[in-house]
């Protein structure tokens, strides 16, 4: 069971990165459906850089940078050219799928050493479930720290207030002199960097290797997480862990004697996403979407 919990936390990490990034972008009023594409490009760039430098940190940084660059492309089209956000996000996902396959074609199946745990092994042995708590690499804790940081930023910081204002009513924000488009641009870039980190975690630590389409819909699950977490940070974190548990079923269910075809367990996360969306949809207490989400805004001059 300890192994399952530990694996769950590891599996939650990429979802958490990506969903937190999307949460920030959506709170500023921008719906970026390109998470999957940004994660893939982040994953492949991270892998290539880590392989050639031997540094996981450099790889993670490259992943974040790649995600950010992808998000910049989206922002240019969706914000700069006022294009439909849903369509621009789909373009980003298609583009990212192709680009990552192209960049990573010489790296498929190449092995990479797993990054070691952040804390000394003695900590993990000192307490029950210590391995699930202290046994992870640095990126797991970075994801947790960023959840706390983003919560603080949105709830307490002035920048967070401006960001929420941009997502609530762009016209009012503009009338008040807020640089709405700039705020949204930055939020989208941040979301891209986080998605890139999520992808990087998959290729650097979770697997660790590169395979085409390796995100397997995690970007989309991250998008769903934001919706049923009601755009709240704490619920995103809880949801990520829950979903990670479902993704781990395919590895553990057989061992526990639960009988079903392997494809069923592989489909479980997608089915669980649909189920969760359906169950939480009726509940109006679950928080509400930013009022300006997905709406095109062009400042008048």
């Amino acid at each position: 069971m300890e192994a399952f919990v530990a694996a769950m936390i590891v599996a939650a990490t990429p979802l958490l990165f990506a969903a937190l990034g999307e949460l920030v972008a959506e709170r500023s009023g921008v719906l970026n459906l390109g998470v999957e594409g940004m994660m893939l490009v982040g994953a492949v760039c991270a892998f290539i850089v880590a392989k050639s430098t031997g540094s996981t940190a450099a790889g993670a940084l490259a992943g974040a940078g790649a995600g950010l660059a992808m998000a910049a492309l989206f922002a240019l089209v969706a914000l700069g050219f006022s294009a439909n956000q849903a369509a621009a996000g789909l373009a980003l996902t298609i583009f990212g799928g192709g680009l990552s396959g192209l960049l990573g074609r010489d790296y498929v199946g190449v092995p990479l050493p797993k990054p070691g745990p952040l804390f000394p092994a003695s900590w993990a042995e000192a307490i029950p479930y210590g391995k699930a708590i202290f046994g992870h690499d640095a990126m797991v804790y970075l994801a947790l720290a960023s959840a706390v940081g983003i919560w603080w930023f949105l709830a307490r910081a002035r920048g967070g207030l401006k960001l929420r204002a941009a997502g609530d009513n762009a016209e009012s924000g503009h009338a008040l002199g807020l640089p709405v488009l700039r705020i949204r641009f930055l939020a989208v870039l941040f979301g891209g960097a986080m998605a890139g980190l999520g992808g990087a975690y998959l290729s650097l630590a979770y697997t660790p290797m590169w395979g085409e389409g390796m995100t397997a819909g995690r970007g989309w699950i991250a998008l769903a997480l934001v919706v049923f977490a009601g755009w709240r940070v704490g619920w995103v974190a809880a949801g990520a862990v829950l979903f990670a548990a479902v993704t781990q079923l395919q590895f553990y269910a057989q061992g526990w004697g639960w009988r079903a075809p392997s494809q069923f367990w592989a489909a479980a996360p997608y089915l669980a996403t649909i189920l969760a969306l359906a169950l939480l949809a009726g509940r109006r207490t679950a928080g509400s979407a930013p009022a300006a989400l997905g709406r095109i805004f062009r400042p008048s001059s």
Partner: peptide, 15 residues
């Protein structure tokens, strides 16, 4: 994969 890159670019330019 070049096809995916092309398609993504085409949609971006189109939008």
């Amino acid at each position: 994969n070049v096809a995916g890159v092309f398609q993504g670019m085409l949609l971006f330019f189109l939008l």
